[in-house]
Design a protein around this nucleic acid. Structure first.
Lengths: 186, 186, 186, 186
DNA sequence: GATGAATGAGACTTCATTCAT
DNA sequence: TATGAATGAAGTCTCATTCAT
């Protein structure tokens, strides 16, 4: 789990503050931001950061997991139209990637190796997207010959590209093309 | 442009070796690889690298330009079918990105700010892709309502995603979906 | 000011050792001595030096301030004779410059731009010398038409020259001439 | 000698250009200017600089000698009044030091170790200043109890201080005090 | 002799990580 | 447990000097 139980209350609070800070720092400056900056923004000593996360990489992974966990939690507010639901979720992730550095990376990781890090969350979110996909397919709104893996790849690509695409209109247009390729009846 | 004329033969040879080394080093380890590693692999002193490229960034930009230049030079062997030609070129770039780290980044830069670095090459390759696009559109094989900017975004995204997608079949499948979205008559 | 209060005991100790080392290193080799040498002589890692002084220049400035602060602290043991007091202090600075490289530079800086670095200390010592000057003038032992700025210039020059004058007798003779020019009743 | 005889005409010309460049470069940027900058301004290759002067230090010494030589050549345009002649020459050196970096250093070297470098020129200029001094003393315009060594020290100090004293009026005032100390009949 | 490319030691600085307090 | 000072490897870049052309 994200927040180990065996921790004293204050320790758990600190861990949370570090994650919060890390997310904002990495979100602004990318993964190359310094650990010290994270500690500073969290208002804790650098030692505290390393007590909770043995390496910088571990901290980074933790915020990946955290982001994914949150995505699962704030599950797609089910639209009635399955296609809309699917596309809305997809779009939301892309926009998040455009707004926050290193988020696209998080999504890229999803197609790759969350397994190694946090199998559970990775699986969960994958299952979630899978469900949205299937629902849309069942409703006849998405091609039947599309499976989750390629969706994940497209999603990752869209997020990564969004990070380099400041113009919202252009992001929207590109996404539209992408969705067109997924639509049924071609 | 890549290899200035006024250079002595041996200097030009060394410059070439440095670029070669840089391309392979960055290709393997990404842009964060050390300049020292580049020098080592080129078999020259670190000072030689910095004589030719005053900054690490300058070196990196040089290999970006070099890659683009090479892409232009090895222009798409014109297939008779404009759609095939377009997709073949697109695919080739994606495969290159899958093989070499930091190449995707090169492509991403194309959608963004080659202008600042090497306006000429950037424009050239953009024009090239634009020509392929138009030809396919004229032939009625690609949607008319698609313009270069969004193509560049999709290309960048595909390349970036490919970097994280080791499975060639998966890359192919994803690309196919992308192409479907671009096809005419939807 | 030199040693911030908020520092842990060990940190303050280290900071002191670094300053001590810097003073001796710069004193022997001049301002071009390497920071690494300072670290070595202080018996700390190079990182420690840079933690306390973010820049080599900052370190150098710190020892300038330190020297001045010490000069103020070890204020001229008030002689009864104002002229003697003035000349004694002047002489002492010159002798210090003869013994330690880069000290003359410190004095030169006094005529110039301590303002930028450490306005407080600079002003303090300037006031101090000004007081000695005035006292001597009031006592009728120094010309009335001499003001602080030219005294500072003479002082800087004497210190700088002393750095190149190993012979103490020669330094003394030169200083004597200088004092003669300052004496009243010409 | 400054310009060795056994040199081909073009070589001697090059040597001259290097010296010229070195003097202006060091004059502007001080002794820490780079040798490459000297070569650039001389319009020769860096190799040429090192062919004529085996080390940077040798080059630096050469321009010291050159300056001194020139001082001797442009000997003090004998004023009728020996005191005026002496002070004019002194002042001229100080003003030169104020205008050109590293010139003061040249003067400082005079009190010190030209012997090692260029005994001849050093001696010559020392003799020259000595002559001015004696003439003034003979005319009863300068104290009898002053000898050349202390004059050299005062001169060096004045030059070094001038380098840090941008205000001409302040330089003048300081010099005047200095001259007062040298005047006879105190 | 002239050139300028190559060299590589060394300078400053950053930062993940460790450890004494 | 928390702190933040200490560490030192590693990185980028400069520059005096050498040497092949």
């Amino acid at each position: 789990m994200t927040a180990p139980r065996g921790l004293r209350a204050d320790a758990r609070r600190n861990r949370e503050r570090v994650l919060e800070a890390a997310e904002s720092v990495f979100g602004e400056q990318g993964a190359s931001a310094s650990t010290e900056e994270v500690a500073r923004r969290a208002g804790v000593g650098i030692g505290t950061v390393f007590r909770h996360f043995p390496t910088k990489e571990a901290l980074y992974e933790a915020i990946v997991v955290r982001r994914l966990t949150r995505l699962v939690a704030e599950a797609p507010a089910g639209s009635d139209d399955p296609r809309v639901a699917f596309e809305a979720f997809f779009t939301r992730l892309v926009e998040e990637a455009a707004a926050k550095k290193a988020f696209a990376d998080t999504m890229a990781v999803l197609s790759l190796d969350v397994k190694a890090t946090a199998p559970a969350v990775g699986e969960e979110i994958r299952r979630m997207i899978g469900a949205l996909l299937e629902a849309a397919q069942t409703a006849g709104a998405l091609r039947e010959d599309v499976a989750l893996p390629e969706i994940m790849v497209l999603l990752a690509g869209a997020c990564l590209a969004a990070e380099h695409t400041p113009d919202p209109a252009l992001r929207k247009k590109s996404l539209a093309l992408l969705f067109d390729g997924l639509r049924a009846g071609q």
